[in-house]
């Protein structure tokens, strides 16, 4: 019950704060429109099909990218756990590439890959693959040694040990990496759209801002927030499926 109540309360509070600023008229209404105006702007963008198109472009890129990148990252983490020399190489590459923002490679990538899906695939993979990879490698290396002994007493070989002990024990940490990667996948897509300026929510945000269509900018920001929440909720569902025990355990301990 409270689980539902709190987001509703937050939304209500946000709306109240917003409306208070509007009524207090500290900012000209032109720059800070009332909620009704923002909703209207959003509705008209939906009526024109603009909103759905942008959401679809950005959403499909970010969601497909996040799924692919998380699977590849975890796969690489598993491979690197089995092959220490691969791990040393990948760790080095990760350390080099992690500080590079997605935006930095976009102009060059446009030049090499064009404006299609390949561009987004490249940018998302380059910057997003490392959190699930690093989380997988570090979590698999940190299995509680007592649990490993329990597995050996049960007669587990390396594969059974991985499947029954190390992977389940690593799941909470791996999924924390997945959650982080999923948020940066969306960021990377939006930034790329802003820089390439062809389509998607990132592009539309700037287009509307330069045209000073402020209610539409706010409506788009709200839509991005919804997309972000939807992706976050999907990760939470996966988390409950694979590491629900960890949530329950923490809930009790706290």
């Amino acid at each position: 019950m409270t689980a539902l109540l709190r987001p509703v309360l937050a939304l209500g509070l946000l709306a109240a704060l917003w409306q208070a600023v509007v009524w207090a008229a500290v900012v000209p209404e032109r720059y800070f429109p009332p909620i009704a105006t923002v909703v209207q702007a959003g509705m008209s963008m939906i009526a024109r099909g603009q909103m759905q198109q942008a959401l679809f472009d950005t959403g499909s890129r970010a969601i497909l990218g996040a799924i692919a990148v998380n699977l590849i990252g975890i796969g690489l983490g598993l491979a690197a756990t089995g092959a220490p020399s691969l791990r040393r190489i990948l760790d080095t590459v990760a350390a080099i590439l992690q500080p590079v923002p997605p935006a930095a490679v976009v102009p060059m990538a446009v030049f090499a890959l064009g404006l299609g899906w390949k561009l987004y695939a490249f940018v998302v993979v380059l910057v997003t693959i490392w959190p699930p990879y690093l989380a997988t490698v570090s979590a698999l290396a940190a299995t509680n040694p007592v649990l490993l002994s329990v597995g050996r007493m049960a007669g587990f070989g390396p594969v059974a040990m991985l499947w029954h002990i190390r992977l389940p024990a690593a799941m909470p940490e791996i999924l924390a990496g997945v959650r982080y990667a999923t948020t940066i996948a969306l960021i990377a897509v939006i930034v790329s759209e802003m820089i390439t300026g062809r389509d998607g929510i990132g592009f539309l945000l700037f287009q509307k801002a330069f045209a000073i269509r402020i209610p539409e900018v706010f409506a788009l920001m709200f839509a991005v927030g919804l997309l972000g929440s939807a992706m976050g909720l999907a990760v939470s569902a996966v988390y409950r499926g694979f590491a629900g025990w960890h949530l329950a355990q923490r809930g009790r301990a706290a």
Binding site: N144, V146, L147, S149, V150, R152, M153, G155, I165, P168, A169, M171, A243, W245, H246, Q249
Partner: peptide, 21 residues
Amino acid sequence: TDPPRGVSVVFQDYSRSLLPW
């Protein structure tokens, strides 16, 4: 050399020796 069949252990750190999942 490896854990033989026919031997079982109750570990000192019992709370960590149970699989929490």
